[in-house]
Computed example of a mutant assay.
Amino acid sequence: MKLLKNTVTLAVLAGLGTFGFAANAATYEIDSDHANVRFYVDHFGTTTNSGGFYGISGVLEYAPEEQKGFAGITIPMGSLETGFKPFTKHLRSADFFNVEKYPSAYFQSTDWVFDGEKVKEVKGNLTLVGQTHPVTLTATKFNCYDNPILKKRSCGGDFETTIDRTKWGINTFADNGMMKDVKIVVQIEATPKD
């Protein structure tokens, strides 16, 4: 729990340092029950393998009037599930995500792109298996609403990107027909910090 709090604090500080608009931005904490990262990769030209990471944590800062935002996300790699235990175990191994050595992955936004009043893209850096490279998340939807259960304003959305896994050093089977390109779908919802 202490590690989680420290990670959230670092993400908030990074957001403040990056944009300097905290006075006008609302700060939200990601709701782990409404957040996940899923992936889809071609399996040797036959089917599409998929899996997901759960228990996502972090912060979201959003200032729509200034068309600015910040997202700092921590992904617990040990939460990986595929629905098939041997496949899940293999993906957690050093052949792929090397979860024992790299228990967390991180995304930190650097820029939010708007189309009119709508969030269009979130650009940032993804740290995975110890390497950091830029990615652009395309927003398929993003909205804020008055949460009737929590009695708070909540914000969130769905985002997509495709990465070349070999840029992060995940090369297993890349030369034997398993595609390098991996589609990633990020779903986050966040509520104001107490």
Score class of each variant (00 low, 15 high):
91 L>Y: 00
106 Y>N: 12
104 S>H: 14
7 T>N: 15
175 D>L: 11
90 H>M: 10
3 L>M: 14
62 Y>R: 04
183 K>T: 12
51 G>F: 00
71 A>G: 04
99 V>A: 06
78 G>P: 08
77 M>L: 15
186 V>Q: 04
127 T>F: 03
185 V>T: 11
138 T>K: 14
144 C>A: 08
69 G>N: 05
159 F>H: 06
27 T>Q: 08
11 A>D: 06
33 D>G: 14
16 L>P: 00
2 K>G: 09
21 F>G: 04
187 Q>C: 11
131 Q>Y: 06
81 E>Q: 13
165 R>W: 03
59 V>E: 01
142 F>W: 11
127 T>C: 08
128 L>P: 04
120 K>D: 15
146 D>M: 14
182 V>E: 02
66 E>W: 02
50 S>C: 11
55 G>C: 06
38 R>M: 14
141 K>F: 10
105 A>H: 02
45 G>N: 08
94 A>L: 10
3 L>P: 01
28 Y>D: 00
107 F>N: 01
68 K>T: 13
98 N>L: 04
188 I>Y: 00
105 A>M: 02
51 G>L: 06
100 E>I: 12
80 L>K: 01
162 T>C: 07
30 I>C: 03
120 K>C: 07
59 V>P: 00
151 K>G: 06
19 F>I: 09
146 D>F: 08
175 D>K: 14
55 G>T: 10
109 S>N: 11
138 T>W: 03
20 G>V: 07
144 C>F: 01
174 A>W: 05
4 L>A: 13
80 L>D: 00
47 T>Q: 13
131 Q>W: 07
113 V>Q: 09
123 K>M: 14
131 Q>V: 13
115 D>G: 05
175 D>F: 06
43 H>Y: 08
156 G>C: 05
44 F>C: 09
124 G>R: 03
92 R>N: 13
152 K>G: 02
172 T>K: 09
141 K>T: 12
86 P>W: 02
178 M>D: 11
10 L>E: 13
7 T>D: 15
63 A>S: 12
124 G>T: 11
161 T>I: 08
182 V>Q: 02
42 D>I: 05
62 Y>W: 08
167 K>W: 09
71 A>H: 02
124 G>M: 07
185 V>F: 02
120 K>F: 11
40 Y>I: 10
99 V>S: 01
129 V>L: 05
67 Q>P: 00
194 D>C: 03
25 A>H: 01
3 L>R: 12
30 I>A: 01
68 K>Y: 03
186 V>W: 01
94 A>I: 08
18 T>L: 13
177 G>D: 07
33 D>Q: 15
182 V>S: 02
